[in-house]
Nucleic acid binder design. Structure first.
Lengths: 195, 195
DNA sequence: GCACGAACTTGTCAAATGACAAGCAGATGT
DNA sequence: ACATCTGCTTGTCATTTGACAAGTTCGTGC
């Protein structure tokens, strides 16, 4: 049991330092859930009720544009929280889907449980706060990079920061994440490899 | 004094209900600051140290794209918090500027003060948490609308939700906020007025 | 009242991007 | 080993969008 939640425990500790007893009691609340490749973790229109820690695997969030094209909004790699926070905290239907790109192993806690524990354990509240700030930061950085950088620059950055995504996600998903079509990405890759 | 901070007080209460004595002690920490039209509230490269409540006036946040074009990222209207939360909480230089579009009256608290008070007053911590969730929500909704809607739809929505922005911001600023150039916005307005 | 300037509109043209379709390559199953 | 399928690349072409410049409108100051 202790060993089983080792990665979750160290993630909690690393996000917000706390006594061993506290982190153990928090980790204890998380239940296991596995997803097979291409499972839906969250479906558009539903309220997100689970707060997942992704221990192993890859996922992506996606939605559809006004022409019906599938657009990737986020990639999730191991060792992070997977949750559509807008739907989760505001209790409104999600406009996004989340699907697993590989088999995944997660630890999760439900919205109701999390609310209860937030009140009882200050350290967990602080952990949640840090997660929220990090999620906000990522989203804002992403928004700014969409404005400030070219698709090619974003491609190179992604390649350097998360090369493993390229092993598990199709290029068409990466393309829409970068804000371009698979055709354009293919051309960028061609130009890029020439140098 | 009590009357002076009336708008701030009701904003605090409306965001997170709390006893009158508590809200008064929190409001008491905020200091006044005024900005003239076209003042910089925050400059790119600096760490955001103030958490402002905008009592009256309009502001916008902007940055520059890879070609040097001025791009509006956010409009701020009265009765909300104005703060570059990424820079503020992560203590990193801001990639955005914030400028006043009209004369503005604000109430603010510094980062250090806020940190101190967060620990002492649970209600203020919850208030801050709600603000953070709201900021995250707005950013995410905006990102999704950039994907899911056409520029024309976004224009109509903005016109309906914040018509006052059109009184105080130039169309070129609104255009970049919508993700298009002033030329394209002009064409959208032309088409739209025809119907 | 007239001249000037700023903000917005609009026409023309060029460039970038995407749609579509064909081709290619690697993986998988029989 | 062969056929098949899927993902990726690439060529051609059409469309969209923006750049640029000229024109218009409106407000301000002389």
């Amino acid at each position: 049991m202790t060993n089983e939640k080792e990665k979750l425990t160290s993630f909690l500790l690393q996000t917000f330092p706390m006594p061993a007893a506290t982190v153990a009691s928090i980790a204890n609340l998380f239940k296991e859930k596995e997803f097979a490749r291409h499972d839906f973790v969250l479906k558009e229109g539903r309220i997100c009720n689970e707060y997942y820690f992704l221990e192993t695997g890859f996922m992506r969030a996606f939605t559809f544009d006004h022409e019906g094209n599938d657009i990737t909004t986020t990639f999730y790699v191991a060792d992070q929280i997977v949750c559509e926070l807008l739907s989760f905290f505001k209790r409104i239907p999600s406009r996004e889907n989340i699907e697993s790109l590989t088999d995944c192993r997660c630890w999760y806690i439900s919205f109701d449980e999390l609310q209860t524990v937030f009140h009882g354990i200050p350290e967990f509240r602080e952990f949640g706060r840090t997660i929220l700030i990090n999620a906000y930061s990522r989203l804002k950085q992403r928004m700014l990079s969409m404005i400030q950088e070219t698709a090619e620059t974003r491609y190179v950055s992604l390649l350097q920061s998360s090369p493993d995504i390229f092993q598990h996600a199709q290029l068409k998903y990466i393309a829409t994440y970068l804000g371009i079509t698979d055709t354009s990405l293919s051309r960028i890759r061609k130009d890029f490899s020439k140098r």
